[in-house]
Amino acid sequence: MKKTIFIVALLVLSMSLFAQTKKIQNMTFEDINGKKISTDKLLAKGPIVLDFWATFCAPCMKSLPAYNQLADKYPNVTFIAVSSDSPRAKDKVIKTVKSLKLNMTTVIDGNRSIQKAFNVKEIPETYLINQKGEIVFHHNGYVPGDENKLATEIDKVLKGTK
């Protein structure tokens, strides 16, 4: 019975907290070119879009080119493509990124530290983070047209309304 109460309490806790605005902790990671990236430094320049993807994920192969077009449209926003592929697929990730001609910063999250920080369970998963470090938009999955929703949210962030 006590254990049941424990589970219920945890559930209530999770449900009661979801209304809070989630703020990200500073994270440092390395892109495929070996360049160190700190989220705090990036946020000083502008908002960040994080797109979690993998080479085996068919919807991701559609979302990446679409978000890459947004990256060209919004130069003040840093678009980061976080690959959840295993480290052994690093060369496959590089091939994919180059053949899709992605301008987005690409990171291979081999030890799943970024995925854990964002609690990513399914891909593609997209986060928009404003300059205060708050997650202001979160989208799970991709069907063509979803990039328009992201663009609308980016516009709101750039206008300072979100």
Binding site: A54, E122, P124, G141
Partner: peptide, 10 residues
């Protein structure tokens, strides 16, 4: 296995 549906894979 790895299943992709409704726009997501897991």
């Amino acid at each position: 296995g790895k299943v992709c549906r409704n726009g997501v894979c897991k």
